[in-house]
């Protein structure tokens, strides 16, 4: 088991290294390009040359990568070109805001998705099953940007109940969090519900459930005490992997609602080619993504005795 965890962690480090090389080469392959972006379109050739020399950009690519990697490992990602302050001053606040958003989404989505999935999977092919399945197909067909528009049209323009932007200019405001969370939940819950349904349906067909029903246990006890314990192992992995999707979703939703989070920062940095900020954001994104996958794998092993003891 220790070997398994060590393997997963080693694999995680390897993935991050490969991604860091790809991102670095893509963004910093040509030093002249970097200097132009940092110093702006009006810098003279002379200024560019001085900057390149001063920042070690005349060294070969691999040497620059090693230096960058060393700095990144000690937490120094350089200065943001847009904000003119160290990347760290902006990045972590934004990431914290996104963590609040993501947590709120999971808190709302997981109970809904699991309940619907279990209800649908209990009786495969029933009217309830079909209704829940079709609903989840419809909601996953509406892209996040479209659901933000529909939700805004109903709750902001139509009923005037909620604010249409979530910039949180006057401190934290729960009302401003409602629409972004709703949009993300709407898009994501369908997938988790469908996966839960599949897992539940599979468990319901096993011999031990048939035995439990035939020996006369009350139906709810069969579900709660026997079926759920096995049926909820697979959704655990799905939910953990959903965090990866959430990282994509927040870009759209934060952009639309002007929420000051990680996704909006990444988009702004990419559009305005804030090189050091993009590098930092990419590394954070891949860390969160691979980290949750590793946790999902390890957690799955703990939850599933058949794997744990084999």
């Amino acid at each position: 088991m220790v070997v398994f965890i060590a393997k997963r962690l080693g694999y995680m480090v390897l993935t991050m290294l490969v991604v860091s090389i790809l991102v670095f080469v893509m963004l910093e392959f040509s030093p002249g390009n970097v200097a132009r972006k940092v110093l702006g379109p009006y810098a003279t050739q002379e200024q560019l040359a001085i900057w390149l020399e001063a920042n070690g950009y005349n060294n070969p690519l691999w040497e620059r990568y090693i230096t960058w990697l060393g700095n990144a490992l000690t937490g120094d990602f350089g200065d943001s070109i847009i904000y003119k302050v160290p990347v760290n001053d902006v990045l972590w606040d934004r990431l914290g805001n996104t963590a609040i958003l993501g947590l709120a989404v999971l808190v709302v989505m997981v109970p809904i998705a699991l309940t619907l999935g279990v209800l649908a999977g209990m009786k495969e092919g029933s009217a309830l099953d079909r209704t829940i399945s079709i609903t989840s197909i419809v909601t996953t067909s509406i892209p996040e940007f479209a659901s933000t528009v529909f939700l805004a049209a109903i709750f902001v323009f139509g009923l005037g109940l909620l604010p249409g932007t979530s910039a949180m200019t006057s401190g934290f405001n729960l009302a401003e969090l409602v629409l972004p969370v709703m949009a993300l939940v709407l898009y994501d819950f369908g997938y988790v519900a469908r996966m839960t349904r599949a897992s539940m349906a599979e468990v319901m067909q096993t011999p031990y459930i048939r035995t439990a029903i035939l020996k006369g246990l009350p139906y709810y006890r069969v579900i709660v005490k026997h079926a759920l314990r096995n049926a909820l192992i697979a959704p655990f992995t799905v939910i953990m992997l959903q965090i990866n999707w959430l990282l994509s979703g927040v870009i759209v939703v934060e952009f639309f609602f002007a929420y000051k989070g990680f996704g909006a920062l990444l988009l702004e940095a990419s559009l305005r080619q804030d090189i050091y900020m993009i590098e930092a954001c990419a590394m954070v994104a891949v860390f969160v993504a691979v980290g949750t996958q590793t946790l999902a794998d390890i957690g799955y092993m703990f939850l599933n005795p058949r794997i744990r003891f084999s």
Binding site: M26, N244, L247, S248, A282, A285, A289
Partner: peptide, 15 residues
């Protein structure tokens, strides 16, 4: 596959 897709699209296409 371990990389969040939209993050990849945004960075690559913007660059």
């Amino acid at each position: 596959l371990s990389f969040p897709v939209l993050v990849l699209y945004v960075i690559v296409i913007a660059t």
